[in-house]
Amino acid sequence: MKKNLLALAVLCALTSGAAFAQTAEGPWLVRARVVNLDSSNKDSTGLGLSINDKTLPEVDISYFFNRNIAAELVLTVPQKQRLSSSALNAQIGTLKHLPPSLMLQYHFDTAGFRPYVGAGVNYTRFSSVRLPAGVSIDKSSWGGALQVGVDIPLTKNLVLNFDVKKVYIQTDVFAAGAKLGTFKIDPVLAGVGLGWRF
């Protein structure tokens, strides 16, 4: 009887260990997305400034502190945008921007998929700014970022990801050294991609 109980205990321990090994998740998740950038384009300069919407690549690296809490670094390459003025009815220049964001996320426990919400900070650096003579912008922007998304498991390590972020980006506009106003880009970034958990 004791031998049978001991054998049963060993079997249960091995079975539970195998089950844990099958369900254990590594702390890292790397995703690649295709993202549509849709800008709010609000400004106080009177020029009616706007940048074009565009599709861009995005990569993020997440680290899970536990099953529910993760930090995510969102990256892309510098994006070239056209700057237009509705008041002048013309394109007035171009610029590039690099907008990495650092997010803190909460991932919900649900069956079959893992929705999450996040909030964090964005830093945007403007470069290769080409504007009319005497016109310039502040080349750095700090702002908040909000996020909602879902990971849908496809295999043990591979997930399908849908993600939407609201990122607050703005810059001051100057003419001959005097401030004209503030241009708020504040885009919504809607993306879809794949992630690998390890």
Rank of each mutant, 00 (worst) to 15 (best):
V192Y: 05
T15C: 09
K2I: 11
M103A: 07
D109Y: 06
V59H: 04
T76P: 05
G195L: 05
V159H: 07
K166D: 05
D151G: 03
V192W: 05
T110V: 09
A190T: 14
G134F: 07
A87Q: 15
K96V: 05
K165N: 12
T155Y: 02
D138L: 05
R130N: 15
F126Y: 08
A178E: 15
A24T: 12
L160A: 07
R114Y: 04
S128G: 12
D38T: 15
V148N: 05
I185G: 04
P132H: 05
D109E: 13
L49R: 00
F183W: 14
L88Y: 08
I152G: 01
L131A: 03
P57A: 11
L6M: 12
G181L: 06
V148I: 15
L189R: 06
A13Y: 13
P27I: 02
R130D: 15
H107E: 05
W28Y: 13
K184F: 09
D151M: 07
D151R: 00
W196M: 05
I92L: 08
V35H: 03
P187Q: 02
A178M: 10
D38F: 13
V77P: 05
V129W: 06
L104I: 10
N4L: 15
L194T: 07
N157F: 02
N41T: 10
V159C: 00
R130S: 15
A175V: 08
V117G: 04
F20E: 13
Q170S: 14
L102E: 00
Q91Y: 10
V164K: 03
A145K: 00
L189C: 04
V121M: 02
P78V: 09
A176K: 14
V129E: 06
F108E: 00
T155W: 01
K80D: 14
A87G: 07
G177F: 11
D186Y: 02
T23I: 07
L194N: 03
V10N: 11
I152C: 04
I169E: 01
S85M: 08
D138F: 01
S44D: 10
T55Q: 02
L29H: 08
K54I: 11
D151T: 02
D109P: 12
D43A: 06
L146N: 00
D109N: 12
A87C: 10
I152H: 07
P57S: 08
V159S: 10
P115V: 08
D186W: 10
D172S: 14
V77S: 11
F64S: 01
A119T: 01
K179M: 14
D38R: 04
I152V: 13
I51N: 10
A21V: 04
P153C: 11
D163H: 06
A176L: 14
R67F: 08
F20Y: 15
A32M: 10
D151K: 00
V30W: 07
A190R: 04
E58K: 07
V117F: 08
W142G: 01
Q105P: 09
N36L: 12
L189K: 09
G112D: 08
